[in-house]
Write a protein that binds this DNA or RNA. Structure first.
Length: 114
DNA sequence: TTGCTGACCGACG
DNA sequence: CCGTCGGCCAGCA
């Protein structure tokens, strides 16, 4: 039975499974969790994760446009960008260029129940 | 308890 | 193309 925090736990779990040099979107994670409309919760969960950061590559989670909307949550202007670039991800103007290539869809890679 | 906000997304005009 | 609204759900005053 899913708990109220289960949603957040899943978010952390999925994000941690994001491979190096890859990135996903809030909507993709939310959809994988079964709540496509709760994409905001994904970002919210990650926002809370910064208080308990341990290995959650939140910088690998961006919006549908590949835009680093959460860069401000990192407390800096280029912190999130630097992390992505450091992983070989091409980022310009706080936006992932080859987002379509590095896009990592949990529903496609992980698949529920498998 | 109510109401607003938020690292989003999609639809509507 | 741009602005606005609804939906989703958790956290906080």
């Amino acid at each position: 039975m899913p708990r109220e925090t289960d949603f957040f736990q899943k978010v952390y779990d999925v994000v941690r499974q994001i491979p190096y040099g890859r990135a996903t979107s809030y909507g993709a994670v939310a959809e994988y969790l079964g709540s496509k409309g709760s994409a905001r919760m994904v970002g919210w969960a990650l926002n809370s994760s910064k208080y308990r950061l341990d290995g959650i590559p939140a910088h690998r989670v961006v919006n549908r446009q590949g835009l680093l909307t959460g860069k401000r949550a990192f407390g800096g202007q280029n912190t999130m960008r630097d992390l992505l670039v450091s992983e070989g991800i091409q980022v310009e103007n706080d936006k992932i260029l080859n987002f379509n290539e590095i896009f990592w869809d949990p529903s496609q890679e992980l698949r529920e129940g498998f």
